[in-house]
Design a binder for these strands. Structure first.
Lengths: 212, 212
DNA sequence: AATGTTAACTTAACACTGTTATTTTTAATT
DNA sequence: AATTAAAAATAACAGTGTTAAGTTAACATT
């Protein structure tokens, strides 16, 4: 029973409905376990109608991931208000880890799953806009701290610092998400590992680490 | 044309042949893109005969991964001979990164792909045997360095140190493997990122960093 | 107001996947 | 030479992403 003529706004709403359904399933079952049929059923569509809104599963995934990257930026935004550059830097990192570990399947989707390289010109996210772009936020936080003279003098490239810290935090999150259940590893408690990583980054990067 | 009665050794050889074929395909096409039919064809079998040797695709994958973890241990073994604990620690880490980045698909399979948690009692690898178990090697390297008084006095748990360093190096490798092509990120050159990560770990952990 | 038009949707179908059931082949044993 | 059972091949199933072909009903036009 197809009622006709959807306004552009209604079509956009439909897109969002589908993305929400897909996200819900992705998060609880993992991307690969979710079928297009399941997504369709969840929005009351029959199987193939999803394809009217998204070219294929990959595009649907990409759209959801983009929306979630935006959510990540949203989650990190509060820390940007912190006035002390060092504190901002630390809390930004902690908040990142928190987001990753409370949304492991989001995180896996975003940073651990192979998906076609994104095209910044096509993205709905405004690159370099610190309201939307989490990476731009990171660069901003680190650069400000760098200009404030927070880091060791040997460190001359804030972007390199940022990418190093990101990698460190990502490693922490990725191992936890993927290998937490691995009986081979006698994992130390997660909070201890987080603290140890933060400490290592602090001691390794900051000029005068204030052992918080 | 099935010639009969394979000795146990022949069956094992067949298993290895299949694993080699699977590995070759996994590495070049990624695990998910490889079909059981393709594996079978590559060893001259017809489709379903792989199931005579491996219960299902997951078990085949696990077997290949196990063999590759062993290879990782093999690749790291040479660094264990280094006499200076600090140098051993550093080179072990560098070698790990080298392995990951020259065998990205192996690495993805091992540490970035969700596969059923392994059962150490079932594994063909002897846990805690430093000839075979790369994780045991890591713990050993770090513990020896720790006993040698290499690390900062505040660091009292060698296992925690090891897991932190692993996470840091893993993050470096994982981001490179998964996101190197992402146009969103203005990646610094890989060697610079490796060096920066090594430096951060050194400065953050080692008592008297000898800036190599 | 009756009649096309076409957007929005459904149903049917395809090629392919992992996997199982069944059947064939063939070497060893009786 | 007949029997047996291992080793492999064939056929087939349920489920996947996806495309092609219909179907319905709100609109535009006469």
């Amino acid at each position: 029973m197809p009622p006709k003529v959807k306004t552009e706004a209604e079509k956009l709403a439909m897109r969002n409905t589908i993305m929400d359904a897909a996200r819900e399933l992705f998060i609880h079952q993992g991307v690969e376990a979710v079928t297009m049929r399941a997504v369709a059923q969840r929005v009351g569509f029959s199987a193939t109608s999803v394809y009217l809104y998204f070219g294929d599963k990959e595009q649907l995934l990409r759209a959801v991931v983009e929306a979630d990257v935006l959510r990540l930026a949203e989650a990190l935004k509060s820390t940007l208000a912190l006035s002390d550059p060092t504190e901002r830097f630390i809390q930004f990192g902690r908040q990142y880890v928190q987001f990753a570990l409370t949304n492991p399947n989001h995180y896996r989707m975003m940073f651990m799953t192979k998906h076609s390289a994104c095209d910044p010109t096509q993205s709905s996210i405004e690159q370099h806009n610190p309201e939307q772009d989490a990476y731009a936020q990171l660069i901003s936080v680190v650069t400000h701290a760098w200009h404030a003279g927070v880091f060791k003098p040997a460190l001359t490239d804030p972007v390199l610092i940022a990418q190093t810290v990101w990698a460190a935090m990502h490693g922490l999150c990725a191992l936890e998400i993927n290998m937490a259940d691995d009986a081979w590893i006698n994992w130390r408690p997660l909070p201890a590992r987080i603290q140890a990583m933060v400490n290592m980054c602090m001691t390794g990067l900051i000029k005068e680490p204030t052992h918080e």
